[in-house]
Design a binder for these strands. Structure first.
Length: 467
RNA sequence: GUCCCCAUCGUCUAGCCUGGUCCAGGACACCGGCCUUUCACGCCGGCAACACCGGUUCAAAUCCGGUUGGGGACGCCA
């Protein structure tokens, strides 16, 4: 059995989005599952639109998700001589020819055909003219006009195209740069790619590429076309339709494990299992279980997975992850132990690190104001004596543990006959500024005696000043 | 328009290849309830689907054909 070799070949003409990343993930998983090789290849033959910074972004995105590659990155722009050699071979064998048709004319003819309700195809007018290379000549591949091209797709099953549907595609532009359909084939041949796993938007390219493989006398790789991802309103997920750069997920406080888990479950399944560790993914992944119909991007499910992984992440690590998000809010958190305790009270109630940081704010900054409705209800003249009492009791406490504080409030409740809620809410408001927060006794314990007393005093001042 | 692909709860999916165990299972979302110092978490329960029409068969979500619907592709972009 020969070694499995897959590749991910993005073009650096923009940020990496969910769709492309999912393709990378499936290729990576397939390679890892078979202990094969995963190659990164940058398809930068479009000189106009390719940019160095996007190469960096692609690499950074993949690194963030842990999709490590074994070979590459290869750059098509550095492989021009190789393509030229293969083009020449086809030319010499009469399997390709020069064409000097004006691109603008072709465009007009294409529009006309479309208007007539026909499939826009190149009519092959230069096919037998025996043109010599010139400054405005492209090279076209002589596509067979008879028979059919078919293959067994590992994702879709048998697919067949009538060759009459195809036309003589340009394989080398007038500027000497090969086009996508040709460069991919040459690359996949020379890099020994055994499995081509890509989006189903490439299905129409496949018969053309197969014909080129055959013209070059090379054996075919396996093809597996995976579904595209649709936006909520239907239609391919795109920049216009809600797709965001993959790194934006990181900025939004999404964990890489959550994104990976989400992407893999979109269009693939393994029984009833929803949560997969990286090892399980590698162990279970197979092309056969890919779904055949397109999936709709559902952010709710991503967020659910994210909150799941947020809960799973060990506190010290969660603290490390949270710090940059705190800093973004202008909170300098040097004490990682403190942040870990804070995170421990927030990990079950936030969906993202961004949310968690926002909720953590009061642990680092005293409330600047009190939520209006809550203040009206709980920070009243009537409660003031009780708050004074709480203050005194807390002040007298030794060990400031959650359990001890809990006991203190229980006692107070029995002694005063006040319900816990009537005790907790005013204090919560005083400490956090809102009526919603993590468990109050945890909050008190974490903030510490000094800070708690300070905030209680401020709340009391607020009450006395208000009435 | 032409070609290609696809079709199970609102969404992601299991089952389909190897018909009966499926009056279709899980998850997200949603709706109840429990827990409770608030909000969450957690737990329990509920809602909800085999697109349609024919055929094959003792029997079809599962096989075949058609219809409808959705998606993709039709560049000297990738």
């Amino acid at each position: 059995m020969t070694e499995v070799r897959t590749r991910f070949s993005p073009s650096p003409t923009g940020s990496l989005h969910l769709g492309g990343t999912r393709t990378a993930l499936f290729n990576w998983l397939f390679a890892r599952h078979h202990s094969g090789v995963f190659i990164l290849r940058i398809e930068d033959t479009d000189r106009e639109r390719s940019e160095e910074r996007y190469v960096k972004e692609i690499e950074e995105s993949m690194n963030w998700l842990g999709l490590n590659w074994d070979e590459g990155p290869y750059f098509q722009s550095e492989r021009l001589p190789i393509y030229r050699k293969y083009i020449q071979r086809l030319l010499d064998q009469g399997l390709a020819y020069y064409c000097d048709c004006d691109p603008a004319d072709l465009e007009v003819r294409r529009k006309e055909a479309l208007a007539r309700g026909e499939k826009p195809k190149y009519d092959g007018r230069c096919r037998d003219r025996g043109l010599k290379p010139g400054s405005h000549t492209a090279v076209r591949f002589k596509t067979s006009q008879t028979g059919a091209t078919h293959w067994h797709d590992r994702g879709k099953g048998p697919i067949c195209f009538d060759n009459q549907e195809l036309d003589d595609l340009v394989i080398q532009r007038a500027d000497g740069i090969p086009t996508y359909n040709f460069a991919v084939v040459v690359d996949d041949i020379t890099m020994g790619v055994t499995h081509v796993i890509r989006g189903e938007d490439h299905i129409p390219n496949t018969p053309r590429q197969i014909l080129i493989y055959q013209a070059l006398g090379s054996p075919l790789p396996e093809f597996a076309h995976m579904t595209v991802t649709l936006a909520k309103d239907g239609g391919k997920l795109s920049k216009r339709r809600g797709a965001i750069p993959i790194l934006a997920y990181r900025d939004r406080g999404i964990l890489p494990q959550a994104l990976v888990n989400y992407m893999v479950r979109l269009g693939w399944g393994h029984g009833d299992q929803e949560i997969f560790s990286r090892e399980e993914l590698i162990k279970y992944f197979s092309l056969e279980h890919m779904s055949k119909s397109p999936g709709v991007y559902d952010e709710e499910k991503l967020l659910w997975l994210n909150s799941h992984y947020l809960k799973e992440t060990p506190l010290p690590e969660l603290a490390r992850l949270l710090v940059p998000f705190l800093e973004r809010l202008g909170i300098a958190a040097q004490n990682l132990d403190y942040v870990a305790r804070v995170a421990g009270t927030l990990n079950t109630r936030s969906k993202t690190l961004v949310e968690m940081a926002e909720m953590a704010r009061f642990y680092f900054q005293a409330p600047a104001s009190y939520e209006e409705k809550g203040a009206k209800k709980f920070l009243t003249q009537e409660i003031a004596p009780t708050l004074e009492d709480i203050k005194k009791r807390l002040e007298a406490m030794g060990e400031f543990s959650e359990a001890a504080i809990n006991q203190l409030f229980q006692d107070l409740s029995t002694e005063t006959g006040r319900k816990m809620v009537q005790l907790a809410q005013p204090v919560r408001l005083a400490l956090t500024g809102t009526t919603v927060s993590p468990g109050l006794f945890d909050v008190i314990s974490i903030l510490g005696k000094e800070e708690v007393l300070k905030r209680l005093n401020r709340a009391l001042d607020f009450i006395y000043k208000e009435q």
